[in-house]
Design a protein around this nucleic acid. Structure first.
Lengths: 160, 160
DNA sequence: GAGCCACCGTTGCAATTTGAACGAAAGCGG
DNA sequence: CCGCTTTCGTTCAAATTGCAACGGTGGCTC
């Protein structure tokens, strides 16, 4: 049962999985406690707030959030009902549409961000020293690049 | 917007979130591809297979999986329908019940484990050196302890 | 041993998420 | 300018998940 992952690495893997699960659950809970936002809502707002024109194509947003297309459609329409974003059809490509941050959405984000970031610090970051931060950054940026590459490769059946 | 988390740490946080999301999605997909199991199914089977008597109380299982009680009820009943686990009422405490691994469940696990572990290796572990594994283990075990402690503390209103 | 409060899981129901099927455009080759 | 294939998002139905309310004990106090 363990022939393909030595005990140290298995323990590492398990600690990572469980703690991450717990952390995401906790952050979600904190976020809901002092704002009307879910973790997903918050990330949508962050991405839009940083985008040029504070707008992004649905596909782009789905890709960055690691959401399925239909999930994103639902997510955005939910935020639209609450007035956090608006949806406009894309001028260059009439198939597509883009989500646009509203003034209310920006205010909501500015309001929630300090609480959320504080939450990230207390639960995770404040407990890490600089070397650990550097290690995590290195590992997860590498992992992200690899997984994005793998995803892109699998959509292109390839040249075998 | 950034006054409470410096740029390095913010980047670290973001890489961690996004890559983890991608990794979990990928592992789930791989698991479904070469077994009939979801990530949750797999973890239930692992925990039960390691438990004495290959059985665990619902609450214990929920705690370790970081599942809400109702989610676990649903999860187990789903696995029960597929014959992977059985449910028995607990002798010592008639309020509770316990999930028991079935022979079929164990076989399914043994069958799926090599594939899943290979998947964990190719997507994550094979790309880490020993120092990185050590760092992740240290960080996430500490995080897990802290979050469990926080959760326990918040359920006990406390002595203020 | 009655009264009460805490705990264990389950249920009912609403909200969310997935996955397949679609309609509308774009892009391409002829 | 046709057909054909792809891509972009959406939609619908089904599966999953969260949340609040419950039924059934256990535990404790008096």
């Amino acid at each position: 049962m363990t022939e393909s992952l030595n005990p140290e690495r298995l323990a590492c893997w398990r600690a990572y999985i469980e703690s991450s699960q717990r952390l995401f659950t906790q952050l979600e809970e904190d976020l809901r406690a002092d704002s009307e936002l879910s973790f997903a809502d918050y990330h949508v707002l962050v991405l839009l707030s940083e985008a040029p024109g504070q707008r992004l194509r649905m596909g782009e947003l789905a890709g960055r959030l690691v959401f399925s297309p239909s999930r994103l459609t639902y997510q955005i329409s939910s935020m639209q009902k609450r007035g956090l974003v608006a949806k406009e059809s894309c001028p260059e490509d009439r198939r597509g549409s883009e989500a646009v941050l509203t003034a209310a959405g920006l205010l909501t984000l500015r309001d929630a961000a300090p609480h959320h970031l504080a939450s990230v610090r207390t639960h995770l970051m404040d407990d890490l020293d600089d070397a650990e931060v550097a290690c995590l950054t290195r590992v997860f940026e590498r992992l992200g690049r690899r997984l994005r590459a793998a995803r892109d490769a699998s959509s292109t059946p390839a040249d075998n």
